[in-house]
């Protein structure tokens, strides 16, 4: 039995400890906001927070997450009102939308560690997240806006 805490909810699962967290989230628990994109930690679509760090769930064995705190896009905010979520909607970032949960989860770690990131900081933090539609420019703007919302508390 593996004990998990996902989005502040406890789970106890009888599952192969080598199973990637991604498939436990998607197939077992039913949280499908975390996406499968490459399976080899290249694209960032599967980023979740493990004790606050932006781990790639496709290569994170469930055993590593046992007893730790996992936050997925579904649990990033209570009312979908994280500054990043607000900024994403405000600036109409998405095209197909498939990569965006991963982008937001990566950006959330950046904003926690750097309240006022520069373009360069954003690139350093986000280079691991691929957007096939090419919304990068808007993602960058949205992160700046989210930082502003975060600073102004609105």
């Amino acid at each position: 039995m593996i004990k998990l805490n996902i989005n502040n909810k406890n789970y106890e699962l009888d599952i192969d400890p080598d199973t990637p967290l991604l498939w436990v989230l998607r197939d077992t628990i039913g949280l499908v906001g975390t996406k499968y994109g490459c399976g080899v930690a290249q694209c960032g679509a599967c980023v979740v927070h493990l004790n606050g760090e932006a781990v790639r769930s496709c290569v994170t064995k469930i055993s590593r997450a046992a007893g730790q705190n996992v936050i997925t896009i579904e649990g990033l905010s209570e009312n979908n009102d994280h500054p990043l979520q607000k900024a994403w909607v405000e600036l109409d970032v998405v095209q197909c939308g498939y990569c965006q949960a991963g982008q937001i989860m990566s950006a959330a770690v950046l904003l926690r560690e750097n309240k006022n990131p520069t373009d360069k900081d954003i690139e350093l933090a986000m280079e691991g997240n691929i957007c096939r539609c090419g919304t990068y420019l808007r993602i960058k703007k949205a992160i700046h806006l989210a930082a502003e919302i975060q600073r102004n508390g609105s």
Binding site: L31, V32, G33, T34, K35, Y36, T72, I73, E74, L76, N80, L84, Q85, W88, V89, D92, V93, V94, G97, Y98, Q100, A101, I104
Partner: peptide, 18 residues
């Protein structure tokens, strides 16, 4: 604004894989 933005940024099941 994109009518599905909010669903996308909150991880709602919208895609085939979901």
């Amino acid at each position: 604004k994109n009518v599905e933005s909010l669903k996308i940024v909150s991880g709602k099941p919208l895609f085939g894989l979901d």
